[in-house]
Nucleic acid binder design. Structure first.
Length: 1089
RNA sequence: GGGCGUAUAGCUCAGUUGGUUAGAGCGCCACGGUGACAUCGUGGAGGCCUCCCGUUCGAAUCGGGAUACGCCCACCA
């Protein structure tokens, strides 16, 4: 049955219909754990075996801030290619779509772009109304994105579509937060944030604007006894300085590093420690930087590193806090004036100069921002977690890349990932915005909060015999002695008038007994391992004095008449102890707000507790509990009535945390929250979609969010389901404009996918994004390229059109009589085979097959290979040959190759291939046809056909060079040597393929022919007889001879080089010799003529 | 400031482990209605492979440095 197709392919007429047919087929939805929408079928058994491997990609959810740009299109094209390829291979293939709420970005768009027009800010509307606006907006963009994605031909499973802020994801995020909190992976800590004193609110980083301004830089000493000067633009904050940082390389200050100075800075007493920090610029100011932890982000980090004390100077009202003498309650600027005045008076001010710097101001009211410490939520990346086998999130995430459980494409991104991971600090997840996942933490209303401090009473246990004998006990369980009991009983009086709610004790006998004796009100006693004594390892059971003598090299500190070992070879470090008690304190803060608690423990844990509570260094704290039976009291400023949970607690006075979560928290859960977590994950067992499709195979995204997103997904997935979420990370480069500039709205150089799809068709757009696109590298794209791809798509259409005119569309390979095949037939079949698998052709060209290129993610190569075959081999040669070398076999071959070629092309250009396929009257959709694996297996040495091609090309070329009109036919003589038989058999090709030959004589050899163009191809000589342009021929001949001579000299020089002969491998030398001989022969032939 | 990447024809890019007279597509030029395709065909002209130094018998390819551009991160006291 022959067919007539329209002359040009019209994508507009076919694309939407085809997409609808695909969707209707249900083949986008692999067998689901959930009922399918609209009674659609899943992939039937026939197309996807029960035991088929799964192949899953979760589409990176685009931000709902805006419609998709061409960069998204690039990611979609790449992933749809992978998905369609694997679906055709018979894998159970799932590609899951969704969108991201992009908290900050979306809030900004709505507030700055939409509300601003009406002259409103979000505060004018209030939280609820504002969020309503945001949802209105996002519904719109979501619909646009959905439509765009479908237009791209994406074979996504829409029945599983998700949104990072839909109901299911909200529940998942809450659960995740609570789980992580309970596991100790989330904690509340302080961090410097941006505070606007006028708006009385915190600002996200995006809400801070920078203003270039002139300001004064003051250089001064804190006091006369301080050894050198520092420089600052904000002298008033120096009231809270606890350190001075210098560059470790700075010779001027090296000798001071580590020392502490007590200074009197303008009547305020400060303790200043000199610390080293490599970020300090030696050339700025004096090269010494006053560190104010409470009022600068950078200083805060230094303080954390160096365990500095944090002094808050400025309050939320923008005024100096109480406790700073005459400065208190004055505005920042007033305080500054007074300080400068004093410094001048005391002759401490060395310099006052104008500099330019960036002042951060509030985006709403332009007020200068005050960085203040505030409580924020953090994910602890370093905390060792039980559920991760005692490893931290960071360690596990690093491990995944290092042991190659995750492979990066291209692999250089592994290094970037690891660098970033290794330097990762705890991740602050609370954001001061309204739109997003509200933090599932609740506090009691403010009035009740007043009561919510913890009265902490700390007691050291009573004496044991070992205490008396000066033996190190550590975790050896030594009971209290008589003396100890007596002393402890005396202490009971102290608690007579005090209501103790709870006693928590170390489980060691001496502490437990102490607790029992002190429990006069008969309250509950809880044991807690974290309160155990410092583990001293091999020192335990030895006398302190002996240990001191035997280990003179071990670092010690002496304080309050006691000795402290800073390192114990096989024991715990002070750091370890500090960690566990700090952990303990966090716990009780959250559980026992408002209560009075007695804690009974041992010397070292208590010292460390003292350090944590007062935020001082471990060494400063040592010696606080030197004597047994010491009692100290603390008021723990706690989180009070804090509740962390999926649902708010009962009672009406609980207020939810105002902040919302960093977007990456919810998108970090994307691989499993979309597959039904947590419902599909009970008792560590996966079920439903999660069991079937997680971990996924590939995560493809732009490299710019490798660190932001990919790293988070890895950590979150490890935590939630203890799985690495994907095997491979494929990184798309950015799509730039023709000039290599980033596309952006403001520049107006962006390409809108819908516009170019409308103009050139989806297939053309997809192909233009796949060809010439290397993973991880940016790509430039202009409309010209898309147009070129459109032309190719149309070419494929016309190839089919031609074939349909020639051949009946129904036939099979078994119908082809191999014996009847011509050289050209065999040549094209063999070449086609090389697309599917390496065979004789590929082994000669050393190329991979299209299948192999796809397997190793070299999509551009695969497309180029297919394109070369389609255009150069199939259309330009084989189709042309078929116009005169006719046979029934040929018609079959045309159909057979077309059929397989369509399959190979389908993942790249799904619409046009599906349409052509349909025109073949096929019942099934091409989309679920099997990927070709069977070769035709008719091998022929392609070089035999190459000879014929070469002859034809050479003749065409010289016709063009000599400007012979196409209408002018030429007699031709070929001296073929031992190729005579071959050339004779293919003479019809040489005559018919636009060589304009009237008469062709093929001889083995013969005499030189005058008045003819002379051509040489290897051993073969060709004469185009009857050429008149003698002069031109001579010129050409001479040019060729010159060329050959030059080349010959090059080769000769190489071969004359003794070093080359001596050092180069034998094979290479042979090759070069061969080249030399061939060139020489050719030259000889030309010279004779 | 730190890390990473890129630099090859007018443009967009290939160039596998060092051995090519350095390739393709677009654009350009010339010719051309030939059994599908002018969204086409045939042919051609375009290159100090950014620069410098080194390793090597041999470098577009490996190493070092410079320059330019891009991306990410930190910082601007």
């Amino acid at each position: 049955m022959k067919k007539e197709l329209p002359k040009a392919y019209n994508p507009k007429e076919v694309e939407d219909k085809i997409y609808a047919a695909w969707e209707k087929s249900g083949f986008f939805q692999p067998e689901a754990g959930q009922p399918l929408a609209d009674n659609l079928d899943n992939l039937p058994e026939k197309l996807c075996k029960k035991d088929a491997k799964t192949y899953t990609i979760i589409l990176p959810p685009p931000n709902i801030t805006d419609k998709l740009h061409i960069g998204h299109a690039s990611i979609i094209a790449t992933q749809d290619l992978m998905i369609r390829y694997h679906r055709m291979k018979g894998d159970r293939t799932l590609w899951l779509p969704g969108t991201d709420h992009a908290a900050i970005a979306t809030q900004n768009v709505v507030e700055k772009r939409l509300l601003k027009k009406e002259g409103l800010s979000r505060h004018d509307l209030g939280r609820e109304k504002f969020l309503k606006k945001v949802w209105e907006y996002l519904k719109k963009t979501q619909a646009v994105i959905l439509n765009q994605t479908k237009k791209m031909g994406a074979s996504l499973d829409w029945s599983r579509e998700a949104f990072t802020l839909d109901k299911q994801r909200v529940e998942a995020v809450k659960k995740m937060f609570v789980d992580m909190y309970k596991a100790g992976a989330i904690y509340r800590g302080e961090r410097v944030i941006n505070w606007c004193p006028r708006c009385q609110s915190t600002l996200s980083d995006d809400e801070v604007e920078y203003k270039n301004q002139k300001t004064k830089l003051y250089t001064f000493k804190y006091s006369k006894n301080f050894p050198f000067a520092i420089a600052t633009t904000r002298p008033e904050t120096k009231l809270g300085d606890t350190a001075v940082a210098v560059n470790p390389k700075d010779k001027r200050y090296k000798k001071y590093i580590g020392k502490t100075y007590e200074v009197d800075f303008c009547d305020i007493k400060l303790k200043i420690k000199i610390i080293a920090d490599r970020h300090v610029e030696m050339n700025f100011g004096t090269g010494a930087l006053g560190v104010t932890p409470a009022h600068s982000m950078a200083d805060w980090q230094m303080a954390e590193k160096n365990r500095l004390k944090i002094i808050k100077v400025i309050g939320e009202d923008g005024k100096i806090k109480n406790g700073f003498g005459e400065y208190s309650n004055r505005s920042v600027l007033e305080a500054r004036k007074i300080i400068i005045k004093k410094l001048k008076k005391d002759n401490l001010l060395e310099k006052e100069e104008e500099i330019e710097n960036n002042l951060s101001v509030c985006y709403r009211c332009d007020t200068a921002i005050e960085p203040l410490p505030s409580k924020q939520w953090f994910v602890s990346v370093d905390k060792k977690l039980e559920r991760l086998g005692g490893k931290s999130l960071k360690e596990k995430a690093i491990e995944a890349a290092k042991n190659k459980s995750i492979e990066f494409i291209p692999d250089r991104f592994e290094k970037r990932y690891l660098d970033w991971m290794e330097n990762m600090h705890d991740w602050c997840i609370s954001r001061q915005i309204w739109f997003g996942h509200r933090i599932p933490v609740y506090y009691k209303s403010k009035v009740k909060n007043q009561k919510s401090k913890i009265n902490l009473i700390i007691a050291r246990h009573g004496k044991t015999d070992w205490n008396v004998r000066g033996i190190m006990q550590g975790q050896k369980d030594i009971p209290m002695n008589k003396l100890g009991e007596e002393t402890t009983f005396k202490l009971r009086d102290k608690f007579k008038n005090e209501k103790i709610d709870l006693i928590i004790t170390s489980p060691l006998k001496r502490a437990k007994r102490t607790a029992e004796i002190l429990n006069i009100h008969n309250v509950e006693i809880i044991e807690d391992d974290r309160l155990k004594e410092h583990y001293y390892g091999m020192f335990e059971g030895k006398r302190r004095d002996d240990v001191l003598k035997e280990n003179p090299d071990i670092k010690i500190v002496e304080k309050n008449g006691a000795t402290f070992w800073l390192e114990i070879p096989d024991g715990e470090s002070y750091e370890d102890v500090r960690k566990r008690v700090s952990d303990f304190l966090e716990d009780i803060k959250n559980k026992y707000a408002g209560k009075t608690i007695l804690v009974v423990s041992h010397e070292d844990p208590l010292d460390m507790m003292h350090a944590v509570i007062n935020n001082i260094s471990k060494i400063e704290a040592l010696g606080e509990f030197t004597s047994v039976s010491t009692i100290r009291r603390y008021e723990l400023d706690t989180e009070k009535n804090i509740y962390v949970g999926v649902k708010p607690p009962k009672g009406d006075n609980w207020i939810q945390d105002e902040d919302s979560l960093d977007t990456w928290f919810s998108s970090g859960m994307w691989t499993f929250s979309t597959l039904g977590w947590p419902d599909n994950f009970k008792n560590g067992k996966k079920s439903g979609d999660l069991a079937k499709f997680h971990p996924t195979q590939v995560l493809g995204t732009g490299y710019e969010i490798l660190t932001l997103w990919v790293s988070r997904m890895i950590m979150m997935s490890l935590f939630a389901v203890n799985e690495i979420p994907f095997e491979k990370v494929y990184l798309n480069g950015m799509v730039l404009d023709e000039h290599g500039k980033k596309m952006s709205k403001s520049k107006g150089n962006g390409i809108d996918p819908l516009v170019v799809i409308d103009k050139f068709g989806t297939d053309a757009v997809r192909l233009s994004l796949l060809i010439g696109n290397t993973p991880g590298n940016d790509m430039r794209l202009g409309e010209e390229k898309i147009e070129g791809c459109r032309n190719f798509v149309n070419k494929l259409w016309n190839i089919s059109r031609y074939i349909y005119q020639m051949s009946d569309v129904r036939c099979q390979m078994s119908d082809v009589d191999v014996k009847k095949l011509t050289l050209a037939d065999k040549w094209i079949l063999t070449n086609f085979d090389s697309l599917i698998d390496v065979d004789i052709v590929a082994s000669i060209t050393k190329s991979k097959s299209a299948t192999e290129f796809l397997n190793c993610y070299d999509f551009s190569f695969a497309a180029t290979l297919l394109q070369t075959f389609t255009l150069d081999f199939f259309a330009d040669w084989y189709l042309e040959i078929s116009k005169f070398e006719k046979s029934s076999e040929k018609n079959k071959i045309l159909i057979l190759i077309l059929e397989k070629l369509l399959k190979l092309w389908h993942p790249f250009i799904p619409f046009v291939t599906e349409k052509i396929w349909k025109e073949m009257d096929k019942k099934n959709l091409l989309m679920v046809e099997k990927w070709p694996t069977h070769k035709f297996n008719i091998s022929v040495d392609p070089r035999r056909f190459d000879i014929i091609q070469n002859i034809i090309k050479t003749i065409r070329n010289s016709r063009s060079q000599y400007k012979i009109k196409p209408s002018q036919k030429i007699k031709t003589v070929i001296y073929a040597g031992d190729k005579k038989e071959l050339i004779e058999s293919q003479a019809h090709l040489i005559k018919n393929l636009r060589t304009g030959i009237s008469e062709l004589k093929i001889l083995e050899k013969g005499a030189k022919i005058k008045d003819a163009i002379y051509l040489v191809i290897g051993d073969i000589e060709i004469y185009l007889i009857g050429m008149i342009d003698k002069k031109k021929e001579k010129e050409n001949l001479q040019k060729e001879i010159d060329n050959l001579e030059k080349y010959l000299i090059q080769l000769k020089n190489k071969l004359d080089n003794k070093n080359f002969i001596a050092n180069a491998p034998f094979k290479i030398v042979e090759i070069e010799k061969n080249k030399y001989q061939k060139t020489k022969d050719k030259l000889k032939k030309y010279r004779v003529n």
